[in-house]
Design a protein around this nucleic acid. Structure first.
Lengths: 125, 125
DNA sequence: CGATAATTGATTATACGTTATCGTTAGCGG
DNA sequence: CCGCTAACGATAACGTATAATCAATTATCG
């Protein structure tokens, strides 16, 4: 599964992630990539995303209560905003807070994950 | 499913949650409650937890990439610490940070979820 | 104390996301 | 332009968490 060949499907999937500023789920990838390769199947999306993760080009984005989405690897530390209206996930930069302060005595903090919920600008209110 | 009768199984499950200061998954509930009712089955745990959520006595605790755990409802705002060694989830009180500041222009922030990862005091290092 | 029906526990079934299968298509080195 | 085989797409199979089924048990009430 080393992705030896350069196919239209893989180009399309990579382009979709490169053009997106937010994490995408398999269905979102499929829909967007089908604009370039209409015959694209969901199996190829899963296969390709998995391979791109293994080669370090993508990273999974896990959110509570839903299947993983993926985004380009190598971004600087950031968190995510989930729009509860359109279900899209946005990247938010920066990291407010001094999380060390709430960790109980004797606990060792390695990393953290902050998820914001609300409505995105497009969904207004 | 209004839990009309007071059974040993239900008493045991409620006591397990009352005695716990941290969110529990179905298996944890089963193991702990079997100390009181050895014959307890996992189906009853699912049934009872679901009923306790519906009547507002429990709330689900969703963490990225794993099935929901549950804790007593009515606690004051807090977050969770996941020990990556023993897989237990602890409650941390307080809420550091001014999350509003990282929300993009035009986005409306309704709530947030912070998950800390590391090692608990028991697992030391 | 019964009778009734809610509850239980073992088990099977379901839901859903992801992966495996397999015959067909097509990239690419020769 | 061939031939080899990676890759594809459709679909079946899978894993896992949870819910449904159902005969046996048991809480509750007259």
């Amino acid at each position: 599964m080393a992705m030896e060949r350069d196919t239209a499907q893989r180009r399309a999937i990579r382009e979709v992630f490169e053009a997106s500023e937010r994490p995408l789920g398999p269905r979102e990838v499929l829909d967007a990539a089908q604009a370039m390769v209409p015959s694209l199947g969901i199996a190829t999306v899963y296969r390709t995303v998995k391979a791109l993760v293994e080669e370090g080009w993508l990273v999974p984005v896990e959110l509570p209560g839903e299947p993983p989405r993926h985004e380009r690897a190598g971004k600087k530390h950031h968190h995510h905003f989930v729009c509860e209206s359109c279900d899209r996930v946005f990247e938010v930069e920066g990291c407010p807070g001094n999380f060390r302060s709430v960790v109980p005595e004797g606990f060792q903090l390695d990393r953290h994950d902050l998820v914001l919920y609300g409505r995105c600008a497009t969904c207004g209110d």
